[in-house]
Computed example of a mutant assay.
Amino acid sequence: MSNEFRAAIDESFLSARQALGAKSPKRAYPWLERAHILTQRMPLLHAYSHWLTFLAGWEERDYREMLGQAARIPAALLFSKIWVPLGNTGRARVSAFQPMPVSDELKQLLRDSQ
């Protein structure tokens, strides 16, 4: 794993946690989506991205988000090494099986991670 890739993951999680700590889940979601895309192939970090997204849903009292994340946490632990839909943001309002476009920046980071 490159230093740049690890720094991008750390920045995403740190920024998401800071937004959650400030009771600003809407500010956390873009960072959580970024963290999710970057960690999809890493079971523990992938599950952690879903856990933090669950907490954002909790903060908003968004029961759909919480329920969706509750299902995705164990799935992330079980399936991250087998198959993931590239670019999927991990939110409950998106099918867990839907690949999505990836920004050029994230594509480069993902390429560098291999």
Score class of each variant (00 low, 15 high):
Ala7Met: 09
Ser15Gln: 12
Lys81Gly: 03
Ser113Thr: 09
Ser12Thr: 01
Gln69Met: 02
Asp10Ile: 11
His46Glu: 05
Glu11Lys: 13
Pro25Phe: 01
Glu33Lys: 12
Lys23Leu: 10
Ala8Gln: 00
Thr39Trp: 07
Leu106Trp: 02
Pro43Ser: 09
Pro25Trp: 04
Leu55His: 08
Leu14Tyr: 12
Ile9Asn: 03
Leu20Arg: 01
Ala8Asn: 03
Met100Asn: 06
Ser103Ile: 07
Gln40Asp: 07
Ala56Asp: 04
Asp112Ser: 14
Trp83Leu: 13
Pro101Phe: 11
Gln40Pro: 01
Ala75Ile: 00
Ala71Thr: 12
Pro99Gly: 07
Ala70Leu: 08
Arg72Gln: 03
Lys81Asn: 06
Val84Arg: 02
Gly87Tyr: 04
Leu77Arg: 00
Pro85Gln: 09
Arg17Asn: 14
Asp62Val: 08
Leu44Asn: 07
Leu106Tyr: 02
Glu65Phe: 05
Glu105Ala: 10
Pro85Phe: 05
Thr53Ala: 02
Phe5His: 12
Gln98Glu: 14
Ala70Glu: 04
Tyr29Met: 07
Leu77Thr: 00
Tyr48Gly: 06
Tyr48His: 11
Ala19Asn: 03
Asp62Leu: 11
Arg91Tyr: 06
Lys26Asp: 14
Ser49Thr: 08
Arg72Val: 00
Ser2Gly: 11
His46Gln: 01
Lys107Leu: 07
Leu44Trp: 15
Glu65Ile: 01
Leu77Phe: 02
Ser49Asn: 05
Tyr63Lys: 13
Leu45Met: 15
Asn3Leu: 15
Glu65Tyr: 09
Met42Ala: 14
Asn88Arg: 03
Thr89Gly: 12
Pro99Ser: 13
His50Met: 05
Leu78Cys: 07
Leu110Met: 15
Ala76Met: 02
Ala76Tyr: 02
Lys107Gln: 14
His46Met: 00
Phe13Leu: 13
Val94Thr: 11
Trp51Glu: 06
Ser103Trp: 06
Arg93Lys: 11
Glu60Ala: 13
Ser113Cys: 12
Arg91Met: 12
His46Asn: 05
Thr39Pro: 03
Lys23Val: 15
Leu20Cys: 10
Pro43Cys: 06
Val84Ser: 02
Ser12Gln: 04
Gly21Thr: 05
Leu55Lys: 15
Leu106Phe: 10
Leu78Thr: 03
Val94Ser: 09
Leu67Phe: 15
Gln98Pro: 03
His36Glu: 01
Gln69Arg: 06
Gly57Leu: 08
Arg72Ile: 00
